[in-house]
Design a protein around this nucleic acid. Structure first.
Length: 416
RNA sequence: GGACAAGUGGGUGAGCGGCUGAAACCACAUCCCUGCUAAGGAUGCGUACGGGUAACUGUACCGAGAGUUCGAAUCUCUCCUUGUCCA
């Protein structure tokens, strides 16, 4: 949620910044007016309610003293109608305001470059040099099928398109990667947590997936629960509606979960292979920090994810997402793209975001700063998407005959 | 799945429909006293939103929602959660 107080105080600046994210200026204008309306409605209601409370108190005194209450009752009854009207006005204003505010994305940092889509993202640095192949490297689906690691047809048979099944070394590699990543993260100070894969509406509103992106979520029919699109949702919401003490910050967590996405807007993209699946494994990093330390944490998280790829000897690069590619909740995001020689391009494998207080305001996560309660900063990042890592291993470690070498760091996890 | 019971502030735990935003205790914070490994005393100590330079003040919140009432932590209903017993 955007900071309504700040919007009120410095409308011009905030409006300009949000327009970079494509938010309609008139919508913000309306929001500001609505906020003022709500304030007036609140004051009106509270004044009436105060009178009501005062009269009710008098009522008790009258009765105790045996005085006649008929005149007082008439006054109180008349006021009661006004109170009822006032609260209705306030409730409506509140609802409308919330509806508008919840649909507005986070304010992008000034460091976020302008741009329409991923083509405008800015490369920050490259890590490791892609290897030279003496043959034409194959794409991962070809390698996966050739080695019997992944069966795309049977995934479709069991569910629908964009589902796959891993067999043998493919399945074992996934498990090895998950364990390797969790261990790696733990050594960097992230506590491992295991969380539900189904969450309620409140949790998804807290991290910003709802109300705007419901069409990309799988929803249960029997009750209002959704399959998580990322572990960011349950892990961040662990502390929803809590006031943390300063000395328990920063909180650093890592979790492995399956993630579920309808990929509603991605029809026709990456239809082959396991780049874009409805269900995929991911190891996630989540941090909750004080506002003044969130950028340091951000660096640590980016490094953590990048270092995993380095340990796996996978060439990759860091890019700063432009306004058009930036997610709803993020103030700024660094994507990590891994080199895929089969596709001859870098592809996203991790996304690390600082949402600053945006999610904290929605999820009501605060901490005690001296006497005052302040919003925390929340950050999240993948480290890494397991399926895509497997893809990267297949394409980067392939041999001319189609066989695939195993990265050195994974061998202990495979009993090799 | 069925029966019963309970859900109060960081914790334990009182609470008659008005004098309860909520006793008491513990924890915590500040101060005082003492000078020895521990104790005593004083005060303070929920959250959100609004008004005020400030002291302070208004409204709401006692699992959630709805209702009865001039007035609800306290009565009624629904739901959720937890515990116990039965299947």
């Amino acid at each position: 949620m955007i900071d309504l107080k700040l919007l009120q105080k410095d409308f011009e600046t905030m409006s300009k910044k949000l327009q970079r994210k494509g938010v309609d200026a008139t919508l913000l204008e309306q929001l500001k007016v609505k906020n003022e309306t709500l304030k007036l409605a609140k004051t009106a209601f509270e004044t009436l309610q105060a009178a009501q409370n005062a009269m009710s108190k008098e009522f008790g005194i009258y009765k105790r003293e045996g005085k006649d209450i008929s005149e007082l009752k008439a006054r109180v009854d008349a006021n009661k109608i006004k109170v009822a009207e006032a609260i209705e006005v306030q409730r409506e204003a509140q609802e409308e305001l919330e509806k508008m505010a919840m649909a507005i994305p986070n304010v992008p940092d000034d460091s976020v470059p302008d741009g329409a889509d991923e083509a405008d993202n800015v490369e920050l640095k490259k890590v490791l040099t892609p290897r030279e192949f003496s043959f034409t490297p194959k794409e991962h689906w070809e390698l996966a099928e050739k080695n019997g690691w992944i069966d795309f047809e049977r995934g479709v048979k069991l569910a629908t398109s964009r589902f796959s099944v891993s067999f043998g070394m493919g399945a074992r590699l996934e498990r090895a990667l998950i364990n390797f990543m969790l261990d790696f993260n733990r050594e960097r100070g992230f506590e491992e947590v295991s969380v539900p894969a189904l969450v309620n509406r409140t949790a998804l509103e807290g991290t910003g997936q709802l109300p705007k992106f419901e069409e990309d979520l799988y929803k249960m029919e029997s009750q209002e629960l959704f399959l998580i699109p990322t572990a960011e949702v349950p892990v961040t919401n662990l502390y929803q509606d809590e006031i943390l003490s300063a000395d328990e910050l920063p909180k650093r967590m890592t979790a492995y979960t399956s993630c579920f996405r309808k990929e509603a807007g991605a029809a026709g993209r990456d239809t082959r292979g396991m780049i874009r699946q409805h269900q995929f494994h991911k190891v996630e990093l989540v941090a909750i920090t004080t506002p003044d330390t969130s950028e340091i944490m951000f660096e640590q998280m980016v490094n953590c994810a990048s270092d995993i790829l380095t340990a796996l000897e996978l060439p990759h690069r860091l890019v700063n997402l432009c306004t058009g590619d930036l997610g709803f909740s993020a103030a700024h995001t660094t994507d990590i793209e891994v080199w895929l020689p089969g596709q001859n391009q870098y592809r996203e494998i991790s996304s690390i975001s600082n949402t600053r207080a945006f999610q904290a305001r929605r999820a009501k996560i605060r901490y005690k700063n001296g006497k005052k309660n302040e919003m925390v900063h929340t950050l999240n990042g993948s480290s890494l998407a397991v399926g895509r890592t497997l893809v990267a291993i297949m394409e980067n470690y392939q041999n001319e005959d189609g066989s695939i070498d195993i990265p050195q760091v994974l061998k202990p996890y495979l009993g090799m």
